[in-house]
Design a protein around this nucleic acid. Structure first.
Lengths: 292, 292
DNA sequence: TCTCGATGTTCCATTATTCGGAACTTAATT
DNA sequence: AATTAAGTTCCGAATAATGGAACATCGAGA
């Protein structure tokens, strides 16, 4: 119900919720451990589950594929998909395959262009990029995921699994762990309880225990590392950033290939990263402080 | 009062949607030719109007602002906004102001990353950029708008959402007019009938008549110009591109400042632009041809 | 060609959700 | 403190979504 609830951004598990609301038990699913309490927002919630399904699929899905994934009555599913297509949120090609709709791009372009947090942070990200020569990210916590709001690359393009708008897990990214270190322990416990840990590399945290320990450490020292936890060969150092009203809880990071970024070098960069973070927060305070 | 009049993607009188463009069985004599029944897709349609309102606003809106814009009952509006917020499509800050939700970014990032048209076109856009040294765009027609799918700039890395994803009018952009030149005259008439012409510059088309004339010309010669019609001092030359099943009707363009791009130079570039367009379509044919 | 099965679409009574007026809280202003 | 504006919650009535089944459509194999 707080800032932790929509399952849409979680890596796995959005599909389960659909199955839940299909059969008997309704309205009484209070605190569920495995499936995060997906509070279906009526009609919209059901449609969003579908939109999630299609946008998360690796390839355009046929009607029957979606039918199998949702186990809904055919007629119902057909109407729901039709509505999504008619609104431009999905597109149906000549082969009867559903793909994400381009209208989503228009929404996102506006969402991004006007985002105050990003606008304020941008110059500081550029500065940090120039100081280090490596790629700089800005991300915020939404649900269990980090959504990357911005990315400033150097000249040498390094192939990385990161892109503006992409949602990444919070438990294996520098920005994610930095963000988690900002949460009150109560909220943190809740969030961790809903996580399912996927081991992307050998270094990825596999349990809430080890993660909690590291987060405590991060909270003390004020910066976080990603020791090739999300992608092999990629390291980063991150610092937490937040807005005063806690609408944005996230972080910034400097990321690069392990062969170039020794842990020692990353440790040296912790201070400039923290400084940039401090400047961003100062910028937010000036810009947004008065009226809160 | 019509609250679906957003300058977004839906056409008022006639929606150029799947129903129309589907296989063989056209000529069903558009059932909604005179009946302006804005077929709102039930609950979803109403919510999308709200989402449009908020994302199109220049600044975050307060509850009362939205209330005034929609003239809905307060209770109803409040519940609708709550649902959108709960799903992460909108965000409500500490001041009670509604802004676009970051979840939209996640959707869009996936929508973009997997878009086949864009993936196929990309290398040809890069090539065209290198040949001309100017900025190259790829856009497709959705409703009355051109949505930019890709942008290749000179030296600077692509700022993902700076232009990509933006919806622009079809009647005053090179890509837009090139796209319109592909439409069957019946569809074109329907679409033009729903347009309202905003004069961005002195050169912007102000009526369907002059626009229709130019589109006819474009259809003959196979390329289009933007003579500072959308933005003063900016010119472009564009060529139409389409996918075989007409799912994508759009174009590519080379854009730049008028002082550097004489009309004569643009005319010379028409051929390379058309060539790039042809290669993209060939790529689509190879990639998607078989199974249609 | 015909039939069969798989896939996709439409229909309609039932059911659940949304609607919207009004009462009820806050928060800001005089 | 009194008053107005702003936002939230409630509940019967209106409306939209549901889901089962009938209706199309298409491909492949007999």
């Amino acid at each position: 119900m707080e800032l932790s609830d929509y399952a849409g951004l979680s890596v796995k598990g959005a599909r389960l919720s659909k199955a839940d609301q299909c059969n008997g038990t309704e309205t009484m699913t209070s605190t569920d451990s495995m499936a995060q309490t997906t509070r279906e927002t009526g009609t919209l919630g059901k449609l969003m589950v579908l939109l999630d399904l299609v946008t998360h699929a690796d390839t355009p899905l046929r009607f029957t594929d979606i039918l199998a994934l949702t186990s809904q009555p055919r007629g119902t599913l057909h109407r729901q998909l039709s509505h999504l297509v008619e609104e431009g949120l999905l597109e149906l090609d000549g082969d009867g395959r559903y793909a994400p709709g381009l209208r989503l791009l228009d929404f996102a372009a506006r969402s991004w262009a006007r985002n105050e947090f990003r606008l304020i942070a941008e110059p500081h990200l550029v500065e940090l990029q120039q100081a280090t020569g490596e790629t700089v990210h800005l991300g915020v916590l939404r649900g269990q995921s980090i959504i990357y709001l911005d990315k400033v690359e150097g000249r040498q393009p390094v192939r990385m699994y990161s892109q503006i708008g992409n949602a990444s897990p919070c438990y294996c990214t520098g920005v994610g762990k930095a963000a988690l270190s900002l949460l009150p322990s109560e909220n943190l416990v809740d969030l961790l309880a809903g996580l399912s840990f996927t081991s992307f590399t050998a270094s990825t945290h596999a349990s809430a225990e080890t993660l909690t320990a590291e987060i405590r450490e991060i909270a003390e020292q004020g910066y976080a590392f990603d020791r090739e936890e999300h992608e092999a060969g990629i390291r980063c150092v991150a610092a937490p950033v937040w807005s005063e009203d806690r609408t944005f809880i996230g972080g910034i990071s400097v990321t690069g290939p392990a062969y170039r970024l020794s842990m020692e070098l990353l440790r040296q960069w912790a201070v400039p990263v923290q400084l940039a973070a401090a400047r961003i927060m100062e910028g937010m305070r000036i810009r947004l402080g008065p009226r809160r």
